[in-house]
């Protein structure tokens, strides 16, 4: 099992090692938002608790990256399912759970690297993360991302043979989740109904938790909510994902 996880992980990771720059291209959207949108926001007063806008904005960007990256992981699996490469691996003695775990592990590593890169790039702009808080924030982030990745694998498996379901659902889910999480603009400015929806959006709790953690406010209740939301998504995602994989693709 461990061996097989390693086999799958090294297969998935090899293209990244061969073309490390692809990692940065894959981050195009969050980087664009960081530099362009962030620079506009940085002059806007009254974001978050009145501190520098970067403190408020960068955690949001990290969560945004965390949404789109793992979704693309599902896309890469979908391509392999529709082509023949997944089928070929299913005929080998490779452990089926290892196929999912190995892939998820790769997403985990990539996400971590990208998150660290965003933080490092944001520091010269004026972002001042609390060190221990940032580490805790990264943990919540990758737990969330891992769960999302597994869910997106599950969706890819269920979308066969046309793949249509995958596109429809990711587009329909991804953007509302993003817009209603307050990751780019504060939900507090929105009407009451929108705030109610946002309260039920697990992503907004994770965004709040990230903001609190990166500022070093460990005691905030949002940290608990966000952590629980991330963990729940990870547990459900991995459980459903491995189950789907074992049952046969």
């Amino acid at each position: 099992m461990f061996r097989d996880v390693r086999t799958v992980f090294s297969r998935e990771f090899a293209p990244v090692l061969r073309e490390p720059l692809s990692l940065i291209f894959a981050m195009g959207q969050p980087l664009l938002f960081l530099f362009l949108f962030g620079s506009i926001l940085s002059g806007t007063p009254g974001l978050g608790d009145g501190g520098p806008a970067w403190q408020w904005f960068v955690p949001g960007i990290l969560v945004m990256m965390c949404l789109s990256g793992p979704m693309m992981a599902g896309y890469s699996l979908l391509v392999e399912l529709l082509g023949g490469s997944m089928e070929r691996m299913l005929v080998t003695p490779l452990n089926r759970t290892a196929m999912l775990v190995g892939r998820t592990l790769k997403e985990f590593v990539i996400l971590l690297a990208q998150a660290v890169l965003i933080i490092v790039l944001a520091v010269p702009l004026g972002f001042r993360p609390h060190l221990a808080g940032a580490l805790a924030g990264l943990v919540v982030l990758v737990v969330f991302g891992t769960g999302l990745g597994a869910l997106s694998f599950l969706l890819a498996i269920r979308s066969q043979p046309s793949g249509q379901l995958f596109w429809t659902l990711t587009q329909m889910v991804l953007y509302p989740l993003m817009l209603l999480s307050g990751m780019m603009l504060p939900v507090e400015y929105g009407p009451a109904w929108l705030r109610v929806i946002a309260a039920f959006n697990p992503v907004s709790h994770i965004v709040d938790a990230e903001r609190a953690l990166f500022a070093g406010r460990f005691g905030e209740i949002s940290v608990l909510y966000g952590g629980v939301a991330a963990l729940a998504i990870a547990v459900v995602g991995l459980w459903l994902g491995t189950r789907a994989m074992r049952r046969g693709v």
């Binding site: 086999t7 070929r88 691996m89 080998t92 003695p93 490779l94």
Partner: peptide, 26 residues
């Protein structure tokens, strides 16, 4: 097993895929 569709993943070099395949068989 050689399936109807192509076995090698689009993102991977041919040799890398063959090595993975060997690893998959232990």
């Amino acid at each position: 097993y050689v399936g109807q569709r192509n076995s090698a993943g689009e993102n991977f070099r041919v040799r890398d895929e063959l090595v993975t395949q060997g690893r998959a068989y232990g």
